[in-house]
Amino acid sequence: MLKKIKLQEAVGTKLAHDITEIRPGEFKGSAFHKGHTVCNDDLCRLQKLGKNNLYLIDLEEDEIHENQAASILADALAGEGIAWKDEPHEGKINLVAASDGLFKVDTTALAAFNMVDEVMCATLHNHTLVKKGEKVAATRAIPLVMKRVPIERAAAIARQNGAVLGVKALRQAKVGLVVTGNEVFHGLIEDRFAPVLSKKVTDLGSEVDGIAFTPDDEELICQAIGNHLARGCDLIMLSGGMSVDPDDVTRKGIRMAGATQMNYGSAVLPGAMFLAAYIGEIPLLGVPACGLYHRITVLDLVLPRILAGEHIGKAELAFLGHGGLCKDCEECTYSHCPFGKTA
């Protein structure tokens, strides 16, 4: 229960919550902390912060303070790879990445959680690459004092599938590249694909174990895949031959190599003719020629998820559609732009 008292009568009482000071463009933070005993010297500053009354808190048995609530919420939201300190500031707790990796949000559980009136949690987008210590989410209770039950209900919703938030470390894959195309194989043009793909692989902490060049011949493509697998590669990436021309036989080669769960076509531009398939548990990614021209393509959306252990199937490629259109900006600002930010 909250009791309102006039500021002048508050001298000697303890503050019920942090009091925030905002100086536009300069400072935002706690001017006074919860528990601070109000003294005469504080009155002028509190008045300048617009406080003419303060709350005294007398908690009923079934009520909790916003700081307690924030701790319960943070505990329920935080899954594997998420760290947080039980030190609410202005009633809010930040959740950070405990390690480098791919930030994962159960957006359904988050929506259900936020539908509880008394709570909120804001996060980065699902599937954002984050560094250790980076803020990924923040949570707080909305009222200063509330019943305990809605907070526990929100916590239960957050835990429905384990937890709402997590950071998955990327595995270090041993990648086998297959660069297809008669024009490259016969030396008519210089290959540009292998360096582009290799950089994307190494930037994510994996290594390229071998690069095979093949003509547009399904049997030779199949053989190249087989050789990579025999050497112990656990991720195969193929470039070229993914389009609709008669010479585009890469898909045939992938199927011949024994791939199952082949999903050709993604709801992303650039990258519509992308292919994701599996031989056993090993993913095969077919990268269309757009990967040569565009700095960022569907591969940049999918590869981190593959390395985080996610299975990429039809639904995953289809659900990229919303937000899957690159604006082709003159100066690319990915990952700070809307590309790949599905709801």
Binding site: A112, M115, R153, A156, I157, Q160
Partner: peptide, 8 residues
């Protein structure tokens, strides 16, 4: 939906 979401 879990019961927690569907009902109060």
């Amino acid at each position: 939906m879990p019961d927690n979401v569907l009902f109060r």
